[in-house]
Simulated assay, not measured.
Amino acid sequence: MNTSPSLPAEDDGTRHWTEPGIYTVAPGVYRIPLPMPNDGLRAVNVYALTDGDTLVLIDSGWAVPEARERLGEALRGIGAGLGDVSRFLITHVHRDHYTMAIALRREFGGKVALGSLEEPSLTAAANPTRRSMDTQARLLVRCGAGPLLAELAREYGDLPRQHIDLWERPDEWLEPGPRTVLPGRKLEVVHTPGHTTGHVVFADEDAGLLFAGDHVLPHITPSIGFEAVPAELPLRDFLDSLRLVRAMPDRRLLPAHGPVTASVHRRVDELLDHHDRRLVVIAETVASGANTAYAAAHLLRWTRRERELLELDVFNRTLAVLETAAHLDLLVHQGRLTATDQDGVRCYATS
């Protein structure tokens, strides 16, 4: 590692969290925001852990030239380079977390570790015959979203698969439990399904930190079950995972998208309350006559700006309809609604 770094800035909240650079979170822990082209989230946080000799990254960024350049510049701030990364610990298999690790592994040889329950989705994503958004298209049929399905096909049907060559297998499949990642630094791997089936978070008990990936985000609710091989009840899994994290000691929240905040518990409580209220509202849409996820999604408001469904772009409308379906299916599981399948469309009714 280079011995003449420029000093990183303190992560004190005085700058917008997406502003390029490298920010000190805690001794030996640095936050690096990397750009996400053509994505409303704007940036993804990568976290660098180092003892001065060894460098480990939690998540890696989206494998695009601008993000690679920003990562290299940021690492120079702690006297390191891209080739110094010995290991990538990846929270989940979405492209903004996983693909840069694979690209850098090919070039420099660092090891990549990913939650073991991500294997089915990773395998499906790597299938060259699978079309972009194929899984989501099948789910939209079940949601009764014919018009949206046609629009999605026009938007994505003929596009080349992004990063198909970067969906390589990791060097290690992570299992829950403690692991030493650097001399004197131990992390607890915690399985937190919901956002994806194999999502994991990393808890640093000694430093009082939780590297939360997309499981707990400070400003938005993460999408649920957007993956190549989705779970049967992803919202149930997500809420159970939130409760699991809530039962752990409170720690500083180090999210993948958004600023570092003081309390994981505070944000988890907000997310649980949000979904409790959302379940009530979605049940009311069925009582008012909306019998499919697509129909129910039209009666809801979306984002903090309270937008109507048709005000969203086609990708975010897809997310909205699928998340409505996840809430409806959980209500059925809880016995608060019933569901029947009619010509491939799932129809809901009050119990």
Rank of each mutant, 00 (worst) to 15 (best):
T3R: 08
L7T: 09
E10G: 00
D11L: 11
D12H: 03
T18K: 01
E19R: 09
P20L: 01
I22S: 02
V25E: 05
P27Y: 02
P27E: 11
P33A: 01
P35C: 01
D39Q: 08
Y47M: 03
L49F: 15
D53S: 12
L55E: 06
S60T: 04
A63Y: 06
V64I: 10
P65T: 01
A67Y: 12
R68K: 14
L71D: 12
L71G: 09
L75R: 05
L75S: 10
G79P: 08
G81T: 10
L82D: 12
V85P: 12
L89C: 00
L89P: 06
I90D: 03
V93K: 00
V93L: 11
D96Y: 06
T99V: 01
A113K: 07
T123A: 15
P128E: 09
R130C: 02
R131C: 02
S132C: 07
S132R: 11
D134P: 00
L139S: 02
L140D: 07
C143A: 15
A145H: 10
L148T: 02
A150T: 08
L152A: 09
R154C: 10
G157K: 01
G157A: 06
L159Q: 15
D165L: 05
L166E: 10
W173N: 03
L174M: 11
T180F: 08
V181S: 09
V181T: 05
P183G: 09
K186R: 15
V190R: 08
P193G: 06
H195F: 15
T197R: 13
G198R: 04
G198I: 01
F202K: 04
D206V: 14
L209T: 08
A212K: 06
H215K: 03
H215N: 14
V216W: 13
L217A: 05
I220W: 11
P222R: 00
S223P: 00
P234A: 01
R236I: 00
S241C: 07
L242M: 07
L242W: 04
L244E: 13
M248C: 06
D250G: 08
R251W: 10
R252M: 13
L253C: 09
A256E: 10
H257E: 14
A262R: 12
V264H: 11
V264Q: 09
H265W: 12
L272I: 05
D276I: 02
R278C: 10
V280Q: 15
A283L: 06
A283M: 07
V286K: 04
A287I: 04
G289Y: 13
N291M: 07
T292N: 09
A293I: 03
A293F: 08
A297K: 02
L300M: 15
W302F: 12
W302Y: 11
T303S: 13
R305L: 14
E306N: 13
L309T: 03
L310D: 15
E311K: 02
V314D: 11
N316G: 00
N316E: 13
T318N: 08
L322T: 00
A326K: 02
V332Q: 07
Q334N: 11
L337Y: 08
D343E: 14
R346T: 15
A349C: 05
